[in-house]
């Protein structure tokens, strides 16, 4: 490490900030052959430019950073941090070969992708998106604004601090991230995510079954006597007390309509509120686990919706 004391081979905070900015473009040239490879090299360039000056060194550095790489785009940041440290040491003359650098990258990317997907795509974005959507659907501009600002503050802080963490910790970080801390974070995020999904499924899935199951005529005395009321009004003997009684009767649960109509929806709600969305969601999970593509399921549901609407099952 002492060798790196030579200023020339030490990356400043400004250099690391440049790398941080560029890591946001990691996936720009994502390709099916080596995936994030060009993006990786692109983000490393500010550091490589500083560390290597001859054409041969630069060509070699670019070549070793154009190897295959793919992970969650945000969890690449700690790997960048570690690689920056390794490059500093290599430039200062330590014996670190290309295979070692590639080994660190490959070794870190797998476990980290497994952490990033459930945390960012599985929990944070759905929860933030669902919350913002609920605001938007009530006509509030805060929806998109909160989504955009909160997401980017969290994301950019994560990119910068995890890159710095990788830079300071060097190789030790793999153990720490893949070990206890990240596992806790992933589990915790998944618990939160599953809980919120449980809340959202019945709340924001609109399924209504207006099919009438039964019509029961309300007996006299179960229904407010509107006939008597209108008679009183026509004869001019309507009084405040009569109106007050009517309101009290309604509050006491007397019927307003002559018929008690029970729809399929009422019956389902009595059974368990939200049971239809729940069964639908579980059915979709079942289909997904049988490798049915989501788009197929969505089209299938459109067909079900149209047929159900025509038959009067849905409304």
């Amino acid at each position: 490490m002492n060798m790196a004391e030579n200023k020339k081979f030490k990356l400043t905070k400004k250099d690391r900030l440049k790398v941080f900015w560029r890591t946001q473009f990691l996936q720009a040239s994502w390709n099916f052959e080596r995936m994030q490879n060009v993006g990786w090299a692109y983000a490393m360039i500010p550091a490589l430019k500083k560390l290597y000056t001859t054409k041969e060194d630069r060509a070699a550095a670019l070549k070793r950073h154009l190897e295959f790489f793919n992970t969650h785009p945000y969890l690449a940041s700690p790997v960048f941090g570690v690689t920056l440290t390794l490059e500093e040491q290599k430039a200062a003359g330590e014996d670190i070969d290309d295979a070692a650098i590639q080994g660190v990258k490959i070794g870190m990317m797998g476990p980290l992708a497994g952490v990033g997907d459930p945390i960012f795509w599985g929990t944070l974005r759905p929860i933030l998106g669902a919350f913002a959507a609920s605001l938007a659907l009530s006509g509030s501009w805060l929806g998109p604004i909160i989504f955009f600002v909160a997401w980017n503050v969290i994301r950019m802080s994560f990119l910068w601090y995890s890159q710095e963490l990788g830079y300071v910790q060097g190789g030790n970080i793999t153990q720490n991230l893949a070990g206890g801390l990240m596992q806790k974070l992933t589990q915790g995020a998944s618990v939160l995510g599953m809980f919120i999904l449980g809340v959202l499924v019945p709340r924001w899935t609109n399924m209504n079954f207006p099919m009438v199951i039964s019509r029961v005529d309300n007996a006299e005395g179960e229904m407010i006597d509107f006939a008597a009321l209108s008679e009183a009004a026509n004869e001019g003997v309507m009084s405040g007390d009569m109106l007050r009684n009517v309101v009290a009767d309604i509050q006491a649960g007397m019927a307003i309509q002559p018929q008690e109509v029970t729809t399929m929806q009422h019956t389902l709600d009595q059974l368990l509120p939200g049971i239809a969305p729940l069964l639908l969601t579980l059915g979709c999970v079942w289909l997904l686990r049988r490798k049915v593509s989501p788009i197929t399921i969505i089209f299938g549901l459109f067909v079900v919706g149209i047929i159900g609407y025509v038959l009067g099952i849905f409304g």
């Binding site: 459930p118 924001w204 899935t205 999970v285 989501p294 399921i297 969505i298 549901l301 409304g315």
Partner: peptide, 19 residues
Amino acid sequence: VAGGFIVAVGYAMVINMMA
């Protein structure tokens, strides 16, 4: 009508990944 409940597929995809 279908637009009201196809969100279930989105929920199911997230659940499928995490559960």
